[in-house]
Structures are given as structure tokens and as C-alpha cells.
Amino acid sequence: MMLNLSGRKTLQIQTPEGVVFNLVAAGLFTRFLAWTVDGAVVMTASSVIGMGAQFLMILSPDFANALMIILYMVISVGYGIFTEWQWRGQSWGKQLLRLRVIDASGLKLQLSQIIIRNLLRPVDLLPACYLLGGTFAFWNRRGQRLGDLAANTVVVAIPGSFAVNVQSVEEGKYNSFRDYPHLESRLRQRVSPAEAALALDALLRRDEISPEARVELFRPLAAHFRSLVPFEEKVDEMITDEQFVRNVVASVYRQAGSRSSRTAPIAAD
């Protein structure tokens, strides 16, 4: 387990074949939101049962009352266990917030793990509102609350669908880095996925910020990429920081068609 570049906790698993993959641990706030959704589901289900019990009141108020008390407990305790088992580590709240409970070793989640993580909630809730569990999860390197630690489970964020929207950034712009394929190659080796994504994001949102702020934003980004791969002065001097970052992004995400025509505009890709 480690922190990734965005400061989020990640769970690193190495398969026997030597493949290493990282799963991003869910943030505390997202988990809190999912818990709120689940709480609302439990409350709604209890209300529905309460309404159903009103009919039983006619037959036996005592029996209806007992049924309500027992069913409320069964729902509040059993909801998490049932949904996480049925939907492979996802309750309704977790589905909505794109979270999943997984075995910390990456193996299949077992029923006993789900039961333990759900039934140990009383200690995480202490003294109120998940203060103990939340504090523990904040300091824990896997973002586990106490119930997760006992069950050897981790709540991870599920990545959404992917789409690389580079074209809108590149459109109509000439990339002078194309004349230096060896430096482009080095860029692809040295720029991490998170750095590339950050730069792409900055370019996609450049129209939302003022010109002064744009200058301030792209200066450190360009400086960082320049420190990774130094280009010749004549290339570097001719372009602004923003253009430099745009060229980096275009080189990193470059498509096949552009490789053969060095001087063609990137938009032709």
C-alpha cells in the first residue's frame, strides 16, 4: 500500500505472474456519502415495513410491534451483509458512488469477511458518527476502518469508463517536438500517467480561467516537464509555456497517423 501522485492511498497487488496492479482506496468523504445513501435505504425500507405492520396491528398490535422491532434490526444489520454478498462488495450506496469492498489480497471476497466488517461497526461508530473508525481509516495506510482490518477488506474506488480527449487540445496546432522523435520518446518514458492527465486536464479547462491565471498555471507545469526532458534552446525559446505543455500532451498521447508526417498539424491525427 502506498500513496499515489494525487495523494490517494492505493492498494498494490502483485500476481504470481509478476503483474503489479494498483487499486485506489476510496476516500473517506465518498465512503461517508455512500453510508448516507445506505442509511436512507435502510430508513425507507423500515418505513415501508412500518406501513405494512399497520395492517397487522388490526389483527394483533403486540405481534405487529414485535415484528417491527425485529425486522428493523434485521434490515439495519442484514442490509450491508446481504447487498455486499449479493453484489460482490457493493451496497446501493457503494454502487452509486462507484465503490467496492474487496479482499485486501485481491482474492475473492468471502461471506465471513462481509459479516465481520459489517458486525464490527459498533466499535467504528464510537463515540459517535464513525469518529473512531474514521480516524483509524484516515491514518491507516490502506484506508481501513477497524471492521475492515478485522475482515482484511479494503474499500476501493472503481474507475469509470475511459476516454482520451486529446483532439480538442491539439486542434489546429503545430507540434514542434515532432522534429525531435528521440526527445518525444524520452518524454513518453519519463512522464507519468498522472502527470500527463494533469497537463491534459489543465489544457482542457484553459478557457475557464483568466489569461493571467493561465500564465501562472502553465509556468510550473512547463518547468516540470522541461526538467524531465531538456529540449534544445531554439525549440524551447520559440514557444510559450502553454504551448510547451500542449506539445508534451500531444507527444505523450500521439496517434499512429501523425508519426509518419512530422510536419503535419496534430489535428490531422
Binding site: I13, T15, P16, V19, F21, N22, L23, V24, I102, D103, G106, L107, K108, L109, I158, P159, G160, S161, F162, A163, V164, L187, R188, Q189, R190, V191, S192, P193, A194, E195, A196, A197, L200, V252, Y253
Partner: peptide, 22 residues
């Protein structure tokens, strides 16, 4: 240095299959 979205997607996919196979 690809998009982290693709990396994340593939990591999640491999993780799910890994859990089933291993």
C-alpha cells in the same frame, strides 16, 4: 505515459479476474 483512466480500468479488470482465478 498513457491516460490514468485506461490504467485504472485495466487494473480494476485484472484485479477482478485475478480474484476469480487465484
Amino acid at each position: 505515459a498513457s491516460s490514468p483512466e485506461i490504467l485504472g480500468y485495466l487494473e480494476a479488470l485484472v484485479a477482478r479476474a485475478y480474484g476469480e482465478i487465484h
